[in-house]
Amino acid sequence: MDAVPSDAEIVADVLAGRTERFALLVERHEDALFRHALSLGMDPDGAADMVQDAMVRAWESLAECRDPTRFRLWVGRILRNRCLDHLKSASTRYTTSLDGANDGAFEATGIPTPELDTQERALHASLDEALAALPDDQSEAFVLKHVEGYGYGEIAELTGASVSALKMRVHRARDTIRALLEADGFGPT
């Protein structure tokens, strides 16, 4: 069985003419990019559009990817810039609130949960509520750190924020999530 090719190997293949292999990069990174777009405040349809657009732009400028071993960081930056540009325009915000009580990026994850029992459904509802309470910058930092597994240095490169600021965002996100889950009875007994 062939070894799984690295991003850098696939980029080299694409630039050498095996363009169809670019689909492998899309398949490998689209879920993470999709979650990143959601964490920035995009709605699911908009997030999908942004991921598609970012990957096409990545293909168009693939020769400019100076370090293909860090393709995911590079395409993540493209996605982030596209999302922020999009969100700057009026009326594109998925979740809005005048009182600030629900100004987070995630309104609801919409994850189907047909197989879950009542207790698990309640937990998921509580998680949705906690994630919706996070401001965008905390949502993004939490997702990149704890879901996608980026190091703080990589997140700093991706977002332009300092490592200390990012740690503060993640710390606050953890605190909010813990507090809201425990307020709903989902804590240690």
Binding site: D31, L33, F34, R35, L38, A48, F142, V143, L181
Partner: peptide, 16 residues
């Protein structure tokens, strides 16, 4: 524990 629950929950989100 709370962070892990949230990360696992978010990790189920999939691109279409």
């Amino acid at each position: 524990s709370a962070s892990t629950e949230a990360a696992t929950h978010l990790g189920r989100l999939r691109s279409p």
